[in-house]
């Protein structure tokens, strides 16, 4: 077998005795979430998909079941304030046009999506409103204001199944995302699939590898005690495999976001979730 020595080391690091995903059921504020579903037809190598929640310890899992215990809601509160805050030359707030944030129910499940030939993530929609309708400066892709508002908007879809379009206009973007998912990059020469498809449920050092699902983003991580964007998380993964990360908000990450969203079709939106 032609295996580079470091690969042997990495493989040995996946302790085989470790338990895979657990059987716990997630109920948030009394509402049941789908954390396990049959893999969508386009996934050739997996039969079942699992929310990242299923790979966390009981203590971390518990934090997501109650909106007060979930520290992400501090930021959702900030998002509510930001949503109503007038900014820019037009004297408008988000709420000037979008009177009820509840009207965004379902939006999270469909993003990213193609509009006028462009693949758009939620951050793009927020920033185009800011620059075009409000006359305000765009927010930083993974900054505190952006994640607070994307958490608030995403929360409106909580409990609804992920349901992104991958055919028609979206097809070329989806293909690009799939290509990226399986392409080895960086000094460690690893692809997304090496960890999150081939070895999910295994331990990587003392941590449980998940399937890398994005149904709970933005997610509050205990590690940095703040909301983390999808692209911010991609960037972290790429740094860990010693690759030069793509730009947050760039075409590569948006295509990858679409592909990953499609690997989670049927899982409940958990935004804002809690992870380690």
């Amino acid at each position: 077998m032609n295996m580079k020595p470091w690969i042997a080391v990495v493989v040995a690091g996946f302790a085989s005795a470790a338990a895979a995903q657990d059987d716990n059921r997630l109920s948030i504020e009394g509402e049941d979430m789908v954390t396990e579903a049959a893999a969508p037809a386009h996934m050739e190598n997996l039969d079942t998909i699992y929310s990242g929640w299923r790979f966390r310890s009981g203590e971390t899992q518990a934090l997501e079941t109650d909106d007060f215990d979930n520290p992400a809601f501090v930021f959702v509160d900030q998002g509510i304030d930001l949503f109503d805050k007038v900014d820019g030359t037009e004297g408008k707030a988000c709420s000037s046009c979008h009177e009820n944030v509840e009207d965004f129910a379902g939006l999270r499940t469909q993003l990213p999506k193609v509009q006028d030939g462009q693949l758009l993530a939620m951050e793009d929609l927020v920033n185009s409103c800011r620059t075009e309708r409000m006359g305000a400066e765009p927010w930083k892709w993974s900054g505190g204001q952006m994640t607070a508002v994307t958490a608030l908007i995403g929360l409106q879809s909580r409990g609804m199944p992920m349901d992104v379009a991958i055919d028609g206009e979206a097809a070329p973007f989806w293909e690009q995302g799939k290509e990226l998912y399986y392409t080895r990059v960086g000094q460690l020469d690893m692809s997304c699939s090496n960890c999150h498809e081939d070895n999910y449920g295994m331990m990587i050092r003392a941590d449980h590898l998940s399937q890398g699902q994005i149904n709970g983003f933005p997610t509050y991580r205990l590690k940095n005690a703040k909301l983390n964007s999808i692209h911010g998380r991609f960037k972290g993964c790429m740094k860990n495999i010693r690759a030069t990360p793509f730009a947050e908000g760039g075409d590569e990450f948006k295509a990858l976001e679409l592909y990953l969203a499609s690997r989670g079709q049927g899982l409940s939106v958990e935004t804002p979730s809690v992870r380690n």
């Binding site: 960890c195 331990m203 990587i204 050092r205 003392a206 941590d207 590898l209 590690k223 972290g236 993964c237 860990n240 992870r275 380690n276």
Partner: peptide, 8 residues
């Protein structure tokens, strides 16, 4: 206190 993998 565990040392995370990539999550760490």
């Amino acid at each position: 206190v565990t040392i995370g993998g990539c999550g760490g």
